[in-house]
């Protein structure tokens, strides 16, 4: 009975996503059953939409920059957290992790107030990246904490004992061993930033990101099939990225000779 419930739950979980490709290939312009016929027109329409292309490019730029910056900050915080003791550590770590439990609308509005009302700066993709780094860093820290945690401190000491300096030890031992964690963190941060809507909605200037662009399309019923086609592609890409991240994480665990405790977080 429990198994039946779980299967039903998974169907519930996947139902909306499963509908995406159904309507993306449906030739009818109304999103309803029964289906009309098969078409690739909606995908073809994506290829010629220049607004979409620039939004996509913006999103990729934002997500790429965000993931690199978040992982750099995450590396520092996770390393400090696992390897060092210093006064105020718990408080500092707590503060850095707060965005994880802060409603995104609060992050969005508070930054909007500072940027526009206090400084009078103009909004741009830079403000979006700044906010995305803030919310992605805790995720990077969570993943990298686990990486540093499973790294035997004696490995670094052994490298130093064998004649390496601190920096060459980091390059030769630490970095290769936490690389799977770094890659997983990069991919997760990339996915979060690529998918994030509300902060981008508040903080973007004239350049829109992909979710903001999709949001603007949702008001037009005749655009819906195209959105379905776009959504299908996005979901496939997201699943590919996540699979890559998960595969990487497992490889990392296997390499460290540890046992899998499951899950990204």
């Amino acid at each position: 009975m429990l198994r039946a419930y779980v299967v039903a739950f998974l169907i519930f979980l996947y139902a909306p996503i499963a509908l995406l490709p159904v309507f993306a290939f449906n030739s009818g312009t109304v999103i309803a059953f029964p289906l009309d016929g098969f078409t690739l027109d909606w995908f073809a329409a994506l290829r010629t939409n220049s607004e979409l292309h620039s939004a996509l490019l913006n999103s990729l730029t934002v997500a790429g920059t965000t993931s690199v910056l978040s992982v750099l900050l995450g590396l520092m915080a996770a390393r400090a957290n696992i390897r060092y003791t210093f006064p105020g550590k718990a408080a500092a770590m707590g503060l850095v992790m707060i965005p994880l439990v802060l409603p995104e609308i609060i992050v969005a509005t508070s930054l909007l107030v500072v940027v526009v009302q206090f400084f009078g700066w103009s909004l741009s993709l830079v403000t979006v990246v700044a906010a995305h780094v803030l919310i992605c860093t805790p995720f990077a820290i969570a993943i990298l904490n686990a990486s540093f945690q499973s790294l035997d401190p004696a490995l670094e000491e052994a490298a130093i004992d064998l004649g390496e300096t601190r920096s060459s030890t980091f390059r030769l031992v630490t970095l290769p061993l936490i690389m799977p964690g770094i890659i997983a963190a990069l991919l997760i941060c990339f996915t979060i930033s690529l998918d994030e809507f509300i902060i981008a909605f508040f903080l973007t200037g004239s350049d829109t990101t992909l979710p903001v662009y999709i949001w603007s399309l949702l008001r037009f019923p005749n655009q819906l099939p195209v959105i379905m086609a776009l959504g299908t592609i996005l979901v496939i890409v997201s699943i590919l990225i996540l699979t890559l991240a998960e595969w990487n994480r497992r490889r990392g665990i296997a390499r460290m000779g540890g046992k899998d405790s499951g899950g990204f977080l």
Partner: peptide, 14 residues
């Protein structure tokens, strides 16, 4: 866990 988390990470808006 991977199967359960996938939908969470994919296109919230959609």
């Amino acid at each position: 866990l991977f199967l359960i988390t996938i939908p969470f990470w994919t296109s919230y808006l959609l």
